[in-house]
Amino acid sequence: MAGYDYDAAFCPHYHHAAELVGRRWTGAIIRALLHGATHFSQIRDTIPDLTDKMLTTRLRELETEGIVARTVVPESPVRVEYHLTDKGRGLEQAVRALNDWADHWLVAGQDQPH
């Protein structure tokens, strides 16, 4: 196809980021952390229908990617806290933009802008 830039249309870094953040529950978890949730139960309670198993899986993935840091607080009883790293906080603008898009285009019960 003349004029179509195949190299510009696909970027492996963009694809990885979209696949990572686009996994079920991941965006909601990042949003909860951006809004101040730090404990497992806070994150879970913020997101309806999120199971403990799925939250554990997603937090581990985000930790492996360097987006979330897990900290064990040596108190009695021991507490575990989750925080976004600098890399994770770097997603704030993207999360905010997606939220604004959703508010504009996906508001339930209202006429959709054309």
Results as ranks from 00 to 15, higher is better:
R96H: 09
L84Y: 04
E81N: 14
H114A: 09
P12G: 00
Y6V: 14
L33S: 05
I29V: 15
A8T: 12
K87V: 05
P74F: 03
L106V: 05
R89Y: 04
H13M: 08
V107C: 14
E92S: 13
D100M: 05
R96I: 02
R89S: 02
D100K: 04
M54P: 00
W105D: 06
D45I: 02
V73M: 12
V72C: 10
H104R: 08
T46M: 04
V72M: 10
T46W: 02
I67K: 04
W25A: 03
G3E: 12
R44F: 00
T51D: 04
D5K: 11
G88W: 01
I29T: 05
M1S: 15
R31L: 15
Q42V: 06
I29A: 04
F40C: 08
L106G: 05
H83C: 14
L106M: 12
G3K: 09
H35W: 11
L84P: 00
T57Y: 06
G109D: 06
Q93S: 08
R23I: 04
P48L: 05
H104N: 07
P48C: 05
T64G: 12
R24E: 09
H13L: 09
R89Q: 08
R31G: 08
A8W: 05
P77N: 06
L59D: 01
T26Y: 00
I29C: 05
G88Y: 03
R60N: 13
E92N: 07
K53W: 13
E61R: 10
L91A: 03
M1N: 15
D5F: 10
P113E: 00
Y6H: 13
R96Q: 09
V78C: 09
Q110W: 04
R23K: 13
R23C: 02
Q42M: 10
G88V: 04
V107E: 15
